[in-house]
Design a protein around this nucleic acid. Structure first.
Length: 381
RNA sequence: GGGAGGGUAGCGAAGUGGCUAAACGCGGCAGACUGUAAAUCUGUUCCCUUAGGGUUCGGCAGUUCGAAUCUGCCUCCUCCCA
């Protein structure tokens, strides 16, 4: 029997929708699925302390290999005793491999069969990440779940490019598996790619399944495609993935896409959207998106979201939040980030309850109806 | 009392005869953001409903085909000397 770092237990399948709830057992405790994972790229969920993350019922959070390698460096984090101790976060952590930076830092990198040459966005120095290097770093960072080093291809891209990219990412996936030194302590996930091409997505998934990963991610999403395309990408990716394994849709964080993803069988999501837009003054609320900067809130002394139970909504008014934002007071950034994160975490809690009560389809339809959404909205909410 | 320098859109500040309704910054108004190079970026910001038109650069009167830019007077502000 192979050593497993995590185990996934499906607890209920919704009779109405087929969506599922589960428990993911990790070295740092159990988390319930489906779940939303806050992103803490540089070993920090921007502006948010671990205590605040616990209070909002966050489970797994992310950190990023590329950014942690640059600062403070993986050796420092290893010396600290790993990410959990370094960050003082005791719930599970997942590290992304640096594959997304192949996409987001496309102007300053070169892909070769061996790996990816980056030009540091900090000082221009030459960096190199191979599948082996990414896994070595992630082994040192010590997260509960680590990701295979992949190419997150841009969108759209030619079929020819995608075929080559996916073939290389599959070779890299095997190399990641071979390089992994901490099986039994860290679960390694494979990442399905293939863009909008059904056969390539299926091929990618089938080949990854042969390699037998502890979990599977759907990647190459949230790179500029429409919601409709995103949903097709999920469908294509899911066809060949084993039902009993945990599935992770990467980079998706608008609430409509979360609910669609759950309906399609996704268990884990992550996204910078809630924290980023919070920093920019936009909030996800039960009343839809709210831009706290707007003049109309200057003397609005009601809560940001009357249906929200977060620290921000329980204690502060829109007028005060607007004042904090406009005055560039850090407290505003923190309160708004807390709210948006809690909004998505709560949405997942509600979704789990609906699944467990066999009414997830109703739940999703009510949510879409309430916010005037449909499955083709490109912007969504 | 003598001398010097100034008054430009909400604020600060360029511009010193036509390419100027007037750079730029701030402030204001609105928008975007999806495995984080993002406390960032974009649009807009004299008036009129667009094309376009109408009024502007302390005030008034001039010079000129044409003035925020030149001249005279008035007015206000700052600094230096008494």
């Amino acid at each position: 029997m192979k050593k497993q770092a995590i185990s996934f237990e499906i607890t209920h399948i919704c009779k109405q929708s087929g969506a599922r709830t589960g428990i993911l057992h990790t070295p740092h405790g159990d988390v319930l699925t489906p779940m939303f994972m806050p992103v803490g790229t540089a070993a920090s969920v921007k502006f948010i302390s671990p205590e605040e993350l616990y209070e909002m019922n966050a489970g797994i959070i992310l950190a990023n290999t590329y950014h942690c390698m640059l600062r403070p460096g993986e050796d420092i984090i290893e010396q600290a005793g790993g990410l959990h101790k370094f960050m003082n976060y005791n719930n599970p952590i997942l590290t992304d491999s640096g594959g997304f930076q192949v996409f987001s830092l496309a102007d300053s990198r070169k892909i070769t069969e061996e790996g990816v040459h980056f030009k540091s966005h900090l000082d221009g120095s030459a960096l190199f990440i191979s599948p082996e290097k990414s896994i070595e770093i992630q082994n040192k960072l010590g997260a509960d779940i680590i990701m295979a080093f992949d190419e997150c291809p841009p969108y759209p891209v030619s079929r020819e490019y995608m075929e080559k990219s996916v073939a290389r990412t599959l070779r890299w996936a095997q190399r990641c598996k071979d390089a992994h030194q901490k099986e039994g302590q860290q679960a390694l996930f494979g990442i399905v790619q293939g863009g909008e091409f059904k056969d390539i997505r299926r091929f990618s998934a089938q080949e990854l399944v042969k390699m037998d990963f502890e979990g599977y991610a759907i990647g190459g999403t949230s790179v500029g495609e429409s919601k409709e395309t995103l949903y097709r990408m999920i469908d294509y990716s899911m066809i060949d993935l084993p039902k009993d394994k945990v599935k992770y849709l990467m980079g998706v964080g608008s609430s409509d896409a979360l609910l669609e993803g759950i309906l399609k069988g996704v268990d884990m999501f992550d996204c910078v959207l809630p924290t980023r837009i919070a920093r920019h003054g936009t909030l996800m609320t039960s009343q839809g998106r709210v831009n706290i900067k707007r003049a109309e809130y200057a003397d609005d002394f009601t809560a940001l979201d009357p249906e929200c139970d977060c620290y921000c909504c329980k204690n502060y008014t829109k007028a005060y939040l607007r004042h904090l934002y406009r005055s560039n007071e850090g407290l505003g950034t923190r309160l708004l980030s807390i709210h948006n994160l809690r909004f998505l975490i709560k949405l997942m809690e509600d979704a789990r309850a609906a699944i467990n009560e066999d009414r997830f389809l109703d739940f999703k339809e009510e949510f879409f109806k309430k916010h005037n959404l449909n499955s083709k909205d490109s912007r969504g909410f």
